[in-house]
Simulated assay, not measured.
Amino acid sequence: MSDPTVQPVPASVVEQVDAADTTLSNPRRAVIALGGNLGNRLETLQGAVDALEDTPGVRVKAVSPVYETEPWGVEPGSQPAYFNAVVVVRTTLPPKSLLERGQAIEEAYDRVRDERWGPRTIDVDIVAYADVVSDDPLLTLPHPRAHERAFVLAPWHDIEPGAELPGRGTVAGLLTAVGRDGVTVRADLELRLPE
């Protein structure tokens, strides 16, 4: 079920995007990482998946298993464990519009940005968008730390074992280099692929 608090992208934004980008007739593949460690983690992840599917110009094509992950970048035990997942979408939105949609989903779930690597209800990160490589400070593509994060690589590998992270190599190779320490698949939990 979709979260009614998540607002659709306004038609005016979609129209501006259409006017600004002539590639929109060709949907692009994007990889989006989801994670959260506050509130009902599974329900929030599912709400984010549903909100992505409800976005004009976005279709969810694959949803990974749920992983439970120790918090990254902080002292062990200082935060609750995260639930993480990766979603592959096809989209006609350009990267910055997809970023805006991700931020709107975070806002709908009361994401707070008080501290770097702080606890959060939901984090929606674009990991990769087609083969785009960009150093734009607003949206660096691919995600600048995805290649060193097992909580992104493991679920992504589950749904796209042959995938490549542009400029970094295969997801399988990157995952082998990083290892799976601190990430555990939760076989008892499942995210639904929107119908």
Rank of each mutant, 00 (worst) to 15 (best):
A146K: 13
V74N: 02
G169Q: 08
I32G: 04
G167F: 10
V127Y: 02
A163W: 12
E53G: 08
A150N: 03
V127S: 02
E106F: 07
R145Y: 02
A48K: 11
T176M: 13
Y82I: 03
P137M: 14
E75P: 09
L193T: 07
A20Q: 14
P161G: 03
V178D: 00
I122M: 06
R116P: 11
R149N: 00
V124D: 01
D123S: 08
A146M: 05
E115C: 13
P161W: 04
V58E: 12
P4H: 04
A30W: 07
A187T: 11
N40Y: 14
V66M: 00
R186C: 14
E148D: 07
A146Q: 09
S64N: 07
L52K: 13
F151M: 01
R116I: 14
A51C: 09
A62M: 10
A172D: 06
V124P: 04
Y129H: 08
R120T: 10
P155H: 06
S134T: 08
S2K: 14
S64P: 06
E164V: 12
L98D: 10
T170F: 05
P65C: 02
G182C: 00
R145I: 01
V74A: 03
K96N: 13
V127F: 00
R59Y: 12
L175G: 01
Q16N: 13
S2V: 04
V183G: 00
D18K: 09
G118S: 01
S2N: 14
P161R: 09
V86F: 02
E148F: 07
A30L: 03
L174T: 02
M1H: 11
A30D: 05
V152S: 06
I32E: 04
T91N: 02
N26M: 14
L52V: 02
L191G: 03
T176H: 14
R28G: 13
T23Y: 08
R29S: 13
V31K: 01
P166Q: 01
A163F: 08
L45C: 07
L165E: 12
L34Y: 11
T55R: 11
D131P: 09
L99A: 11
L165C: 05
Y129F: 09
T184G: 01
E195K: 14
V133H: 09
L98N: 13
G118M: 06
P65S: 05
R120S: 02
G162K: 09
K96T: 10
L138Q: 12
G47I: 06
L45R: 04
P95T: 09
L38C: 07
P95L: 05
Q103P: 13
D123A: 09
L99M: 11
G36V: 00
A177I: 06
V17N: 15
S2D: 15
V171G: 05
T55I: 03
E115N: 12
E75K: 09
T23A: 10
G77I: 01
R41S: 03
R186D: 11
E106D: 03
T184H: 02
V9N: 12
G167H: 04
E75G: 07
V133P: 10
E107W: 12
P142Y: 06
T170Q: 04
G173P: 00
G169K: 13
D114F: 10
A51K: 08
